[in-house]
């Protein structure tokens, strides 16, 4: 199962729906803006702990933001 780097549009749109900038989300979860940008661009693979922080901050479930079907993962 190869690691494919894809843009995380679901995370980006969930953040935009709240009217948050990357900086706002970063401040909410205690990360840097660059880290949020890299996650959204599929260039950084966050830990489960960070994924949970993001999901909580955006009022979403983990699956809503990060789940990928096996064929795409």
């Amino acid at each position: 199962m190869g690691q494919q780097q894809t843009t995380n549009l679901r995370m980006r749109s969930a953040r935009a729906a709240l009217g948050w900038t990357q900086q706002d989300l970063a401040a909410a979860i205690g990360a840097t803006r660059q880290t949020i940008g890299l996650i959204e661009n599929g260039l950084y693979n966050p830990s489960l702990k960070l994924c949970l922080s993001i999901a909580h901050a955006l009022n979403k479930k983990l699956d809503d933001l990060f789940w990928e079907e096996a064929s795409n993962a």
Partner: peptide, 13 residues
């Protein structure tokens, strides 16, 4: 929810 290290201020990345 705080992911930055207290001392250095670095996040996990």
């Amino acid at each position: 929810m705080h992911n930055k290290a207290k001392l250095t201020g670095l996040d996990e990345r």
